Computed example of a mutant assay.
Amino acid sequence: MTEQVERTEVLPALAGRLATARGPLDGLRTAWLLLSALLIVAGLLTIAFIRPARDATRVEARLAAGRAPRSRWSEEVSARWTL
């Protein structure tokens, strides 16, 4: 529970610092613009990298082979950290 609280306090702290440094109106406007830019970039990355048809094919192939559906990343990580 504490981790989530600490993570959620980052954006209000950033907005507060910007409001203090640049003045209330300019600081909050800058915080909104930064958040908007972050959301746009995240949306574009999502569009570029998530392919539901490809992922469904991969999951179906793994299920047909009797293996649990996992991502490539999780397989690489588990292979590196297996003792």
Rank of each mutant, 00 (worst) to 15 (best):
T46A: 10
E76G: 08
L83K: 03
S36A: 06
R54N: 04
R7G: 09
A48R: 14
E3A: 15
R70N: 00
G23I: 02
L44A: 15
W32F: 03
A79Q: 09
P12Y: 00
V77I: 10
L11H: 03
R54E: 15
S78L: 11
R22S: 02
W32N: 09
I40Y: 01
T8I: 05
T30Q: 08
W73F: 09
V5D: 14
T82F: 08
A48V: 10
S36G: 11
P52M: 13
D26S: 11
S71H: 01
S74L: 06
V41F: 11
A15M: 04
L11M: 08
G16D: 15
P12E: 02
L34W: 06
I40T: 07
D55P: 01
R51Q: 14
G27H: 03
W32A: 13
G27A: 02
G16N: 13
T82M: 09
T20H: 14
A37I: 02
R70G: 00
L39D: 02
T20V: 08
V10I: 12
A42L: 11
R58Y: 02
A79T: 07
L45R: 13
A13H: 12
L38I: 02
L14P: 01
W73A: 05
S36Q: 05
L44D: 04
T8Y: 10
L28N: 13
G23L: 01
V77S: 06
E60T: 11
A56P: 03
Q4D: 09
A64K: 13
P24H: 07
A13F: 13
A64F: 03
R62A: 13
A61N: 05
D55M: 11
I40E: 06
V77D: 06
T2E: 15
A15S: 12
R54Q: 14
L18K: 07
E6F: 06
L45A: 08
D26I: 00
T2K: 15
E75N: 09
L63W: 04
R58F: 00
P52T: 10
A37E: 09
L83H: 05
T82V: 10
I50M: 04
T8Q: 14
R70T: 10
R51P: 05
V10W: 09
A21C: 03
R17C: 06
A21G: 09
A42M: 09
T20E: 15
V77F: 08
R7Q: 14
I50H: 12
G16P: 03
R29E: 06
A31H: 04
W32S: 12
A79F: 09
E76Q: 11
G23S: 05
W73R: 07
W81P: 06
A48E: 13
A37N: 03
V41T: 04
T2H: 14
R51N: 15
R62G: 02
E9R: 15
A68T: 12
T30E: 12
T57D: 15
V41N: 04
S71Y: 01
T8M: 15
T57P: 01
L39G: 04
W73G: 03
V10H: 12
A48S: 14
G66E: 02
A53M: 13
R62D: 12
R17L: 13
L39K: 07
L11W: 12
L14V: 14
L25W: 02
L33V: 00
A31P: 07
L28F: 05
L63G: 07
W32H: 10
L28D: 03
L25G: 00
L35F: 03
T8C: 08
L14N: 03
R29A: 10
A48L: 14
